[in-house]
Design a protein around this nucleic acid. Structure first.
Lengths: 125, 125
DNA sequence: ACCATGTATCCGGCTATCCGAATACATGGC
DNA sequence: GCCATGTATTCGGATAGCCGGATACATGGT
C-alpha cells in the first residue's frame, strides 16, 4: 500500500507509454476496442503469426492495458480501459494537426523562421 | 501532400508513443510544461549530463513534441502541444486507479476469479 | 581572430526489444 | 488416457535503444 514516489510513477508511466510504442500493439488495442477477441482470431484478423500476437498481448497484459478471460481452451482478451482509446484518438488528432501544419502552406507565425528547420524534420518516420 | 495510410499513421503514432516511453523524457516534458528552458538549465534542473538532455530533446524534437527557439547561443525548448500534457495527466490518473484496484481490498467483480492472476502481474516495474 | 558559453554529435559498450520457428503447455471432448 | 484446438514460452539472431565521456560545432562578445 506504499504510495509511489514520483520517480516510480514516472517509471510505470513510461513503461505503459512504451507498450503503446509499437504499431502492432496499437492495432491490437484498436481491434480489441471494436470487440474482444481470442488470440487466434486476433492473429488472423491482423495477419500476425500466433506467437507474435501472444507475445504482444503479454506485454499489454503486464501493463494492465488488456485483460484476459478464459473461455474454455481459448483466452478472450478485452480492453482494460476505454480511456486509453480516447487517449490514442486524441494523439491521432494531434498528429493530424501536426502533419497538416507541416505539409504546408501554413505560416501562422510572425517570425521569418531562421534555420531551425534543418533540425526538426520527421524523416525517420 | 499524400494522405497517410492507416499503417503509416499507426507508425507515426507508435513513434510518438515510444518517445513518451522513457522516464527522463517524461520528466523533461513536465519540466517544460512548467516553463520553457534551455538545454543546460534543463540538464541542471533534472540532474542529467548535458549530452543526455540534448539527445532526449533531439528525440522529442523529431517527434514534434517540443520546439526549439534560438536565443543567442542558447536554445530554449518549448512544449509543442499542451494537449500532450493533458494526455499524460490522464494516463497518470488511469495508472493511479489501476494501482488502487490492484493493491487491494477491492473486489467489485461478481466472479471469484479463477487463476489468471498469475499471468497479469506487473513485476518488472 | 580568439575566447567563453551553450549545444549537438560521435564513439564504444551494454541492455532491451522484436522477430520467426520450433516447442511446450492447457483445456475440453472423446 | 489420447487427441484436437488454442495459447504461451523458449531459442537464437538482428535491430534499436540508452548511456557516459570526449569532442565537434555554433553563437556572441571582445
Amino acid at each position: 500500500m506504499e504510495r509511489p514516489t514520483i520517480e516510480e510513477l514516472n517509471l510505470l508511466h513510461a513503461s505503459v507509454c512504451q507498450a503503446l510504442g509499437d504499431p502492432k500493439r496499437l492495432s491490437i488495442l484498436y481491434a480489441l476496442d471494436e470487440r474482444p477477441r481470442n488470440v487466434s482470431q486476433l492473429a488472423a484478423d491482423l495477419d500476425l503469426p500466433q506467437p507474435t500476437a501472444s507475445r504482444h498481448l503479454q506485454i499489454l497484459r503486464e501493463r494492465h492495458l488488456v485483460v484476459p478471460v478464459r473461455d474454455g481452451a481459448a483466452v478472450i482478451y478485452h480492453l482494460a480501459e476505454p480511456r486509453v482509446i480516447a487517449i490514442l484518438d486524441t494523439m491521432r488528432e494531434i498528429l493530424r494537426d501536426s502533419l497538416a501544419r507541416q505539409s504546408g502552406l501554413v505560416r501562422i507565425d510572425r517570425s521569418p523562421v531562421r534555420h531551425e528547420s534543418a533540425t526538426s524534420g520527421m524523416e525517420p518516420l
